[in-house]
Write a protein that binds this DNA or RNA. Structure first.
Lengths: 204, 204
DNA sequence: ATAAAATCTGAACACTTGTCCAGAAAAAAT
DNA sequence: ATTTTTTCTGGACAAGTGTTCAGATTTTAT
C-alpha cells in the first residue's frame, strides 16, 4: 500500500464520518422543526427540542453551536426543500398557460399541507428585523424565493425585472391566506388561488 | 342639594377618576412602546418596560391584567395613531392625481420616521399566528388598514372591491422596504415610492 | 481483546421570566 | 386633622432559560 493510498483511505474515512455527522444533524433538525413549527421561535426551548428528538439537551450542543445556529440550520433546511419542491413544478414540461395554474395550485396546496412550517418562516423573517443573527439566512432564502419567481416569469414570457415585485405580491397574498387558514378559514387556499390567478392574468 | 344632584356629582367623580387612570395607562403604554420597538415582543420583559417607565414592576400589573394585555394595548394605541395620521392625509382637499402621490409619500416618510414602531407591528402580527391572544387586535388593525386603503381608492375613483388586494400589495412593499431600511439601506424609502407609484399607476 | 476516539447524558450553574402581595407612600374624602 | 382609598413599591417565588462539562456509554481502530 503506497503512502498516497493511505492518505486517500484516511480522507475517505474522514468524509464518511462527517457525512454521518451531517445525517445526524439533519435528523435532529427535522425533529426540531416539528417542535418549532408548533410553538414558534421564541416559545420553543432547547428542552422542547431535545424531548421531541428523544435526546438529551447536551446532545444538541454537541451538534450545534448554540440556539441560533440550530434554528437557522432548521429554517434553511426546510425552506430549501420548499424552493426545490416548487422548482420541480416549473421544470415539468407544460404549456405556459398551464404553468401559471400549476404554480398557483402548488402554492395553495402548500398552504394546506405545510401551514405550520410556513408560519415558522414568517416568524424567523420577523425576528431578523430585531436580531442581526438571522439577517443572513433570511436574505438568502428570500433571494431563493425571488429566483423561483424569476424562473416562473421567464417561462411565462415576462421580463425578469418583474421578479422582485411579483415575489412580493405573491408573498403578501400567500401570507394573508395562510393566516386566514391558520385561523380556521378552510376556504382560504381556494380564495388564494382565485385572487392570485386574477392578479397574474393581468400581469402575464 | 337634591338626591339627583348627589348622584350626578358622584358619577362625575367616578368619571374623572377613570379618566385619570386612563391617562396614566396611556403614559405607561407610551413608555412601553419605546422599549418594545427596540427589542420586540419576545425579548422585552416587564422589567425592561418598568425601567423605561421609571416605575416598579408591580405598577404595571396594577394597570394591566398581564403582559399580553399590556402589549395588545400598546399595539392598538400606536396603530390607531398611524391610521389616523394617514387618514388625515386623505382628508385634505387635493386633486385625485396628487392624492396617490401624497399617500405614497406619507407611507415612505413613515418608514423613515417610525421604522422601529412598524417592525413591532409585524412582530405582533406574526405572534398572532401562534398565540390566539393576539388574533383579535391584529384582525382589528388589519381591518383599519384595509379601510384606509378603501377610502384612498374611492377618492381615486377605483372600485372598493380592490381594497383588500391593494392593501396586501401595499403592505408587502412597505414591509420589504422597511426591512431594507432597517438593514441600513437608506435609499429604501425612495425605492418604495418609485415601485409603488409604478404599481398604483397601473391600477388607478 | 484493548485502547482510543466519538457520542451522548443529565445534573449543575447562573440568570431571567411573569406574577404576586404585604406594606409603604400619596391622594382624596371626611 | 384624621380616616379611608388609591396608588405604588420592591422583595419573594416558582418556573423556565441557554449553556457547560465531568463522566458514562457506544463506536471505531488497532
Amino acid at each position: 500500500m503506497t503512502k498516497l493510498d493511505k492518505i486517500a483511505r484516511l480522507a475517505e474515512k474522514a468524509e464518511a464520518k462527517s457525512a454521518k455527522r451531517a445525517r445526524k444533524k439533519d435528523e435532529l433538525a427535522d425533529h426540531a422543526i416539528t417542535a418549532l413549527k408548533q410553538l414558534g421561535y421564541a416559545r420553543t426551548s432547547l428542552r422542547d427540542i431535545a424531548e421531541m428528538s428523544g435526546v438529551a439537551v447536551g446532545t444538541l450542543h454537541y451538534y450545534f453551536e448554540d440556539k441560533v445556529d440550530l434554528i437557522t440550520y432548521c429554517v434553511r433546511r426546510y425552506k430549501v426543500g420548499f424552493v426545490a419542491d416548487m422548482g420541480s413544478i416549473l421544470k415539468a414540461d407544460v404549456e405556459p398557460e398551464q404553468l401559471a395554474d400549476r404554480f398557483i395550485k402548488g402554492l395553495s396546496l402548500s398552504i394546506r399541507r405545510e401551514a405550520e412550517t410556513h408560519r415558522l418562516w414568517y416568524d424567523i423573517r420577523t425576528q431578523a428585523m430585531f436580531d442581526p443573527a438571522f439577517e443572513e439566512v433570511v436574505a438568502d432564502i428570500e433571494d431563493g424565493l425571488r429566483d423561483l419567481v424569476a424562473t416562473f416569469l421567464s417561462r411565462s414570457g415576462v421580463s425578469p425585472e418583474q421578479a422582485r415585485p411579483t415575489y412580493l405580491v405573491l408573498d403578501s397574498f400567500f401570507r394573508f391566506h395562510l393566516q386566514a387558514y391558520l385561523r380556521g378559514d378552510k376556504g382560504a387556499p381556494a380564495q388564494f388561488e382565485i385572487e392570485v390567478s386574477a392578479l397574474l392574468n393581468r400581469l402575464v
